[in-house]
Deep mutational scan, measured.
Amino acid sequence: KRRTSFTPQALEILNAHFEKNTHPSGQEMTEIAEKLNYDREVVRVWFCNKRQALK
């Protein structure tokens, strides 16, 4: 499976959402994914990886 390359704009939006809520609901992740035109699973993994990076 290929790595997803996030655009700077997408990272800005993802980081803004992460600052508000580090554990978004499934519905929220779906909405973010649709807004950014990414697969929901990609957004889920991004949040998971971001949380791990802060440990």
Rank of each mutant, 00 (worst) to 15 (best):
Ile32Val: 05
Lys35Thr: 15
Asn49Phe: 05
Asn49Leu: 05
Thr30Val: 07
Thr22Arg: 13
Tyr38Lys: 08
Phe18Cys: 02
Glu31Asn: 05
Cys48Arg: 11
Lys20Asn: 06
Gln27Lys: 15
Leu54Trp: 04
Glu34Ile: 15
Ala53Tyr: 12
Glu41Tyr: 04
Phe6Pro: 14
Ala33His: 01
Gln27Ala: 11
Phe47Pro: 01
His17Thr: 13
Val45Tyr: 02
Val42Trp: 08
Leu36Val: 12
Val43Asp: 01
Arg44Cys: 10
Asp39Leu: 02
Ser25Gln: 04
Arg44Trp: 14
Lys20Trp: 04
Pro8Asn: 10
Arg51Phe: 04
Glu34Asn: 02
Trp46Pro: 01
His17Met: 12
Ala33Tyr: 01
Val42Asn: 10
Phe18Ala: 03
Cys48Asn: 15
Thr7Tyr: 02
Gly26Lys: 09
Phe6Gly: 04
Tyr38Asp: 08
Thr7Gly: 12
Tyr38Ala: 13
Thr30Gly: 08
Phe18Gln: 00
Lys1His: 04
Leu14His: 01
Leu36Cys: 10
Lys50Asp: 00
Ser25Lys: 12
Arg2Phe: 11
Glu41Ser: 08
Asn49Asp: 08
Asn37Ser: 11
Tyr38Ser: 14
His23Trp: 09
Ala33Arg: 01
Leu14Pro: 01
Gln52Pro: 06
His23Met: 05
Cys48Tyr: 11
Lys35Glu: 08
Lys1Cys: 15
Tyr38Trp: 10
Val45Arg: 13
Glu28Pro: 00
Gln52Leu: 12
Phe6Glu: 07
His23Arg: 13
His17Gly: 04
Asn37Lys: 11
Lys50Val: 02
Glu31Pro: 03
Asn37Met: 15
Asn37Gly: 15
Glu28Cys: 04
Val45Leu: 13
Ala16Ser: 08
Val42Glu: 13
Trp46Gln: 01
Arg51Ala: 09
Arg51Gly: 05
Ala16Thr: 09
Glu28Met: 02
Arg3Asn: 15
His17Glu: 14
Pro24Lys: 00
His23Lys: 11
Val43Ile: 06
Glu19Gly: 08
Arg2Val: 14
Leu54Arg: 09
Ser25Arg: 09
Thr7Ser: 11
Pro24Ala: 03
Asn37His: 10
Arg2Cys: 04
Asn37Glu: 10
Lys55Ser: 15
Arg44Ser: 09
Gly26Phe: 07
Glu28Leu: 12
Ala16Lys: 11
Phe47Val: 01
Thr22Ile: 09
Met29Ile: 03
Ala10Leu: 03
Trp46Leu: 00
Glu31Arg: 12
Glu31Ser: 15
Leu36Tyr: 02
Pro8Ser: 14
Gln9Asp: 09
Ala53Glu: 09
Ile13Ala: 12
Ala16Arg: 10
Phe18Val: 02
Gly26Pro: 12
Asn21Leu: 02
Arg51Leu: 13
Lys55Ala: 15
Leu11Thr: 05
